[in-house]
Design a protein around this nucleic acid. Structure first.
Lengths: 204, 204
DNA sequence: GTCTATACGTAGATAGAC
DNA sequence: GTCTATCTACGTATAGAC
């Protein structure tokens, strides 16, 4: 308890969490509506100090998005590896994507919703990384088609785009305190994709 | 050909299309990355002149979003009225939503993707309008459940949120010059929602 | 209705002390 | 590594002439 009051901001040791504070703010308010002053404040620093770590506001955003891709890729890959049944695996991957996007970090949200804030140069890099992530989904779906779980006449690319779109948009309305759990939502999407909603005369 | 060269910007008569120029720019670059100077340039005006029509940059955005809601509502209502078959009607409404969002105007895109640029006060108004539009979809879906076309155990609200999400996200990747037509995409979504993608032993 | 001129704030960024 | 101090640019917005 020595030297406690009025501890200089510089001593509080916010070390590596500039990124997580920035991610939270970018998610809450958007990239250009968040100033470096606000980010610095959240880190108990002053604006100029941020430049010791990142060469520009955009460099910060880019680094944050890279981590977003890493995170969601890792989580979906882990889910994929955790089951042998292709249908159950799809369910787990859907829920992993939703969790990475909405629970485990703010970086995935920023990655998906703030990419228009990137300069043309940086955009190319990030889009490439995101495409790499999506290729993981392409693989999941194509495997299901090959294994005969999904009908062969279904367009795999459209299914991926539409399915991921349905999941991504959840981020615009999901309320952690609301009536739906994230897993409930994920399972719903999974059910609709697999079975559809139509009332059928004959069902197995 | 009298008095042709160096026609003053003020004489070009860009009358009512400040909104459409703004909508296009907001869509292409986002609200805060678009300056009033750019909007004015697109209208062959100077920044100050815009204030004759709109009291602030936000007032412009709000007006533009109002028109977005009006447009998409009208188009979906028209589609709804154009068929008596509930399943076909759903298909038409899905395609109407996509067309309003991606072909007929930039305002719907701005409505859906730039609402975070609104102040807290304006946001309430716009969200209310958007909710009103979504209630139209609630009606479409609930009618289908009542008529026994959609299974009664399907959560109508989740179906609406997920379905509209799948459609809205199309705006992030759709390429008019690409391999998919908008109607093709709409029909694909409609098919997945109704039938699912699973390979079934018995199919009608 | 549009222009001219400009006020005012705040943004991102930098240099050098500590 | 962070702070102090500051530069420069650009944003929205306003007042008054035309």
């Amino acid at each position: 308890m020595v030297d406690r009051q009025i501890t200089p901001a510089s001593k509080l040791g916010d070390q590596g969490n500039v990124l997580s504070n920035a991610a939270r703010l970018f998610r809450e308010k958007g990239f250009e509506r968040t100033s470096l002053k606000e980010i610095a404040e959240a880190c108990n620093m002053l604006p100029g100090s941020l430049y010791y770590r990142y060469s520009s506001k955009e460099a910060l955003l880019v680094e944050l998005m890279r981590r977003g891709v890493d995170l969601v890729t890792t989580e979906v890959e882990t889910a994929y590896a955790s089951s042998d049944d292709p249908v159950e695996r799809l369910r787990l991957c859907i829920n992993a994507h939703l969790h990475a996007l909405l629970v485990d970090s703010d970086t995935v949200y920023v990655l998906l919703f703030e990419w228009r804030s990137l300069s043309a140069e940086a955009r190319g890099d990030i889009i490439a990384l995101r495409d790499q992530y999506e290729s993981l989904w392409a693989e999941i779906i194509e495997t299901m088609i090959e294994q005969g779980v999904i009908r062969k006449d279904v367009n795999a690319r459209l299914l991926r785009l539409i399915g991921l779109g349905a999941l991504n948009w959840v981020a615009t309305w999901f309320d952690p305190k609301g009536v739906y759990t994230l897993d409930g939502i994920g399972d719903f999407v999974w059910n609709v994709i697999m079975d559809g909603v139509i009332r059928k005369s004959v069902r197995t």
